[in-house]
Amino acid sequence: MRLLKQLVPVAAVAFVGYAVAGAVAGSPPATLLAGVATAVLAVLVYARVVRWSERRVPEEVATRGAARLLVRWTLVGAALFAAVVANLALVGGYRIDGFGSLAGAAGLVGSMAAAAATEELLFRGILFRIVEERAGTWGALVLTGLLFGMSHLFNPHADLWGALAVAIEAGGMLAAAYAATRTLWVPIGLHFGWNFAAAGVFGAEVSGSGATQGLLHGTTSGPALLSGGAFGPEASVYAVAAGLLLTVAFMWLARRRGTVVAFRRGATATLTR
């Protein structure tokens, strides 16, 4: 019941926010405003329902230091995707065909902010955190990572490999980021930076969701294993490798900090030190 009490209100904010964004899709300023409003409202609703259902202060979305963490990890996420694109370009799998649209990129700030905030609140803030109490950190990481990847199968150009790639590189990495830091601002920043760099900067397709209009007109080509094919660069082996490396780094940090939760058959899990 606690899972439903938290999941339903945040999912409702996401649903309404996406509906509004779809209705104003032709207007980048309106898309920017709707996306940012959805992200902010989702965080506020999450904080409220956690406080109500768990009788605690939701420190994972504490406002103190939030801006610093968001900026820092947005830059890390963008740099990580830029490294993937650089590797693709080196083997001829990515090229720039010209400049795109500044207005289009501004609209993508809103849509990517909404996606990053709502998905992290749902998958890491609620599902991962509650499942972790019983299944432990590793069990929750695998389960929610797979659910996160499979949720992308509904995108127009999605395929099974693309969904599995997202499960490995993003589902694992973002869960590990939360496990190591115990704040949702880190995975939200990583998620936003990665997605905005993909669509808003390099003009690449994000998770098979369709063409984007960012700062650059980017084209991918070559073997699907390297370029990601119709799904976009996230289905590239370079993206999977990048996500896996960061997952390992975060889990090493979580182990060192003593924030890895052990599997328990009872209702309460303990931290392994």
Rank of each mutant, 00 (worst) to 15 (best):
M1C: 07
M1N: 13
Q6T: 09
L7V: 05
F15A: 13
V20C: 03
A25D: 11
G26H: 05
P29H: 12
A30G: 11
A37F: 07
T38V: 07
L41M: 12
A42H: 07
V43Q: 06
V43F: 11
V49T: 15
E54G: 07
E54W: 04
R55K: 15
R56H: 12
R56V: 11
V57D: 14
V57F: 15
V61F: 06
A62Y: 06
R68I: 02
L69C: 00
V71N: 05
V76F: 08
A78I: 03
A79E: 03
A79N: 06
L80E: 12
F81W: 06
A82T: 14
L88P: 03
G92I: 01
G93K: 00
G98C: 07
G100A: 05
S101Q: 11
A103E: 15
G104I: 05
A105T: 05
A106W: 05
A106S: 09
L108K: 01
S111W: 13
M112L: 14
A113Q: 07
A114G: 12
A115E: 10
A115C: 15
A117L: 09
E120G: 08
L122W: 11
L122Q: 10
F123W: 15
G125R: 04
I130T: 11
A135S: 11
G136F: 06
L143T: 15
L143D: 03
L143P: 09
L147A: 10
F148G: 09
H152W: 03
L153F: 04
L153Q: 01
F154S: 14
F154G: 10
P156Y: 06
P156I: 02
P156L: 02
H157V: 01
H157G: 01
A158K: 04
A158W: 10
A165I: 03
A167S: 15
E169Y: 09
G171V: 10
M173C: 12
A175E: 06
A177F: 04
A180V: 06
T181S: 12
L184H: 04
L184F: 05
W185R: 01
V186S: 04
P187G: 05
G189C: 08
H191A: 13
F192W: 14
N195Y: 10
N195E: 13
F196D: 09
F196H: 13
A199S: 15
G200A: 13
G203P: 07
A204Q: 15
V206Y: 07
Q213E: 12
G214Y: 09
L215Q: 03
T219Y: 00
T219N: 00
P223V: 09
P223E: 03
A224P: 03
L226T: 14
G228L: 03
A230W: 03
A230M: 08
A230T: 07
F231M: 09
F231H: 07
G232W: 00
E234M: 06
A235W: 08
A235S: 14
A235M: 11
A239R: 07
V240P: 04
V248Y: 05
M251K: 01
M251V: 07
L253E: 14
R255F: 00
R257F: 14
G258C: 10
V261Q: 11
V261R: 14
R264C: 08
R264P: 00
A269Q: 00
A269C: 00
T270Y: 01
L271Y: 12
L271F: 13
